[in-house]
Simulated assay, not measured.
Amino acid sequence: MSSQKSARKAAQTVGENPLRIDEEKAEQVIDALNTDLADAYVLYHQLHKHHWNVEGAEHRDIHVFLQEAYEEVEEAADEIAERVQTLGGVPHASMATLSDVATVEPEDEDVYDIRTSLQNDLEMYGDILESYREHIDLAAGLGDHGTAHMLREQLIEVEEHAHVIDHYLEDDTLVVDSATN
């Protein structure tokens, strides 16, 4: 696969960083960030799945929203991975490792109605929000205010997506149920 005889940097290692954050502290933040990275990729794939499979009267709006959501999750994942590297770590990159490290449980392969799909997404967003809050506190407590700031900015986006999904799940709709008329 690669012509390089040995890895430049082994996975699961932490080295010096230009931010002058102690390696032991950086390692704790890197572990948290790699969890966030893994969770982001699980969410990304689930949102993408729902984007592909959405049907019904609100198809277009939800289809567009889900694309915007998974694209923002991908951008956040990239920012997290780059921060891991900046802190002297190695961001998780293999699907097997990401799957093993993720703390959120993905929906199975079946296709569900959009209400069920969005409920599953909202549940995952909630789990990620809780994790982000813990990791913000961890990073700030270890003196890594840059990571805490980055995660706070991402937290705002995640909260906004959860808010929009919550609104999609409300009972009020313009769609008339033909079975009740």
Rank of each mutant, 00 (worst) to 15 (best):
W52A: 04
L19K: 14
A7L: 15
I62M: 12
P106I: 12
R133H: 12
T103S: 13
Q85D: 09
E24P: 01
P91N: 08
E157A: 12
E71Q: 14
I156N: 03
N53D: 13
V42H: 01
A76Q: 13
E27I: 03
D144F: 08
T35F: 06
G143D: 09
N53V: 09
R20H: 14
Y44E: 06
D172P: 00
S6A: 14
Y112K: 15
S178H: 08
L129A: 02
L142Y: 00
H50K: 06
V64H: 13
G141N: 09
H48A: 08
V54R: 03
E16A: 13
Q28C: 12
P91Y: 04
G15N: 10
D22I: 05
D177P: 00
E109M: 05
E58F: 07
A26C: 01
I128D: 00
R20Y: 09
D22R: 08
R83H: 08
D108V: 08
E170R: 09
V29C: 10
D166E: 12
E134S: 13
F65M: 08
Q67L: 06
L98W: 01
A148K: 11
L138N: 09
Q46E: 13
D137T: 10
V164Y: 04
L142K: 13
T13V: 02
H50T: 10
Y44L: 15
L87V: 06
E71H: 10
A93P: 03
H161K: 15
D166C: 04
G141Q: 05
D78C: 03
V104T: 12
V175M: 06
Q119T: 11
Y44T: 07
D39K: 02
D127H: 10
S3Q: 14
A93I: 12
P18L: 11
A81G: 12
T86D: 11
H167G: 14
T116C: 03
E16T: 07
H163G: 02
S131T: 10
H51V: 06
E58V: 01
L122S: 07
A40H: 07
T103Y: 07
Y168R: 03
S3H: 06
R152M: 08
A26K: 01
L129Y: 10
Y41R: 06
H149T: 11
A77E: 00
T13M: 03
A162K: 03
H161R: 15
